Computed example of a mutant assay.
Amino acid sequence: MLNNKLLPLVGILLLASCSSKSINYAQLNSYDINDNLQAVVEIPVGTNNKIEYNPTNNRFEQDTLNGGPRVIQFLSYPVNYGFVPSTSMRTQGNGDGDPLDILILGKTLKTGQIIAVKPIGMLRMKDNGALDNKILSVPTESKYQTLDIKSFKDLSQNHSKI
Rank of each mutant, 00 (worst) to 15 (best):
S19M: 15
G112E: 04
G46Y: 07
D35T: 12
N58V: 04
K118M: 12
N36I: 09
Y31Q: 13
D35S: 14
T56G: 00
Y53Q: 02
L15P: 00
D98R: 00
S76V: 00
S20I: 12
I120Y: 05
I104E: 09
A26D: 14
A26Y: 08
N57V: 09
R90A: 11
R90L: 13
L15A: 14
K110R: 15
R90V: 12
P44D: 04
V79D: 03
L15D: 01
S17M: 14
N54S: 11
Q38K: 15
R70C: 01
M122W: 01
P44R: 04
N58T: 09
P139N: 09
V71K: 11
R70N: 14
N29S: 14
N54Y: 07
N128M: 08
A16S: 10
V138Q: 10
N66E: 07
A39G: 13
K21S: 07
Y53F: 13
N133A: 05
L15T: 11
G67K: 03
R90T: 12
E61R: 04
N133I: 06
I102N: 08
S22V: 12
L15M: 12
L109H: 00
Y77D: 05
L28D: 10
K107E: 11
L65W: 10
I43G: 05
S30P: 03
C18W: 05
M89L: 13
F83A: 01
C18H: 06
L37K: 01
S86E: 05
D127N: 13
Q73A: 14
I115V: 15
G129C: 13
V84S: 06
L15F: 11
N58D: 12
N29G: 13
I51Y: 04
K118P: 02
S22W: 02
Y25H: 05
T111E: 03
E52A: 10
I104Y: 10
V71R: 08
I72L: 10
P69H: 07
Q38P: 03
V40Y: 07
L136G: 02
N57E: 05
F83D: 01
D132E: 02
D63A: 13
N66I: 00
P69I: 09
G129D: 13
S137T: 13
T47E: 13
F74E: 12
R90W: 02
S20V: 14
I114M: 02
G121D: 04
G46C: 03
F74V: 06
N24W: 01
G121Y: 03
E52T: 07
I120K: 03
V138T: 11
S30Q: 12
Q113H: 05
T108V: 15
L65F: 11
